[in-house]
Amino acid sequence: MQYGMIIDLERCVGCHACTIACRAEWEVPVPYQRNWVKRLGPTMTKDGMAATYYPGLCNHCDKPPCVDECPADLAEMTFKDAKTGKTKTMEVAATWKDPFDGTVQVDKERCLGCGACADACPYGARYVNPALADDNSDGKADKCTYCKPRIEEGLQPACVQTCITGARIFGDLTDPNSAVSKYVKNGAKGLEVKDGHIGPNSRYFGNKKDISLLFADYTPELADMGSVKRRAMMASMVKPAMRKAKDIGLLGLAGAMLVKGLSEDEKN
């Protein structure tokens, strides 16, 4: 099973209902966002004047580059298939791809708030939410969950439910009879990265000129993993020191350690 979302640009009117419903549902503070709508054009394409929208969200990729970067300690987690009840136990960091439904999720309790995953995402679909800061971090990685808690209650994702034109369709991409699979058969495709294959599962459908405008403007590149890795490493290095620093109430020292960590890393 792999959950996916279709955005039908023929139906989309760029109204932002999806982005605001998401804010309300998940208390996402301004200026952060789990999903977005960008207006494209009007501009001249080879197929004529075009204007369309880029309603974006986490792609819950087949090979999510964000997951590999998480520096949090591995922990054993047991996943359960909602349909069959089958379970699978794996060792995962604070973010993972669910082996059954294919969604990419975050454990906020274990997240260090380092932001390496946000840097690694070529779509900018993750952010560090300072409203979720706790004693160990200045915030937690946050992102679209495909509204997993709502799906488990038998509801639609908040953005899909409120989409006034029915331009957002949610379902199982591995089920050939699902509405989303039919769209894929008709040509819906994801914004795959320029220089790799990560398999985005939020996919776009529309007429030729709108799709060519969207893909021309928003096909992303993979992030520079060198700097992402460095950041993740720093985070795991200073992790115990940070905690200690907070315990004794000497916040300034943690900053100094960060600088030190960086310079040592650069020396290597």
Binding site: C15, H16, A17, T19, I20, A21, R23, A24, E25, E27, Q161, T162, C163, I164
Partner: peptide, 25 residues
């Protein structure tokens, strides 16, 4: 009030509301 949604019983807007409607809170 955490969130506003279209009234599922509506035969007009249905369960759907726009950006402004959602931002009523």
């Amino acid at each position: 009030l955490m969130k506003l949604e279209g009234n599922p019983k509506s035969i007009d807007n249905g369960i759907k509301i726009c950006a402004r409607g959602n931002a009523g809170v």
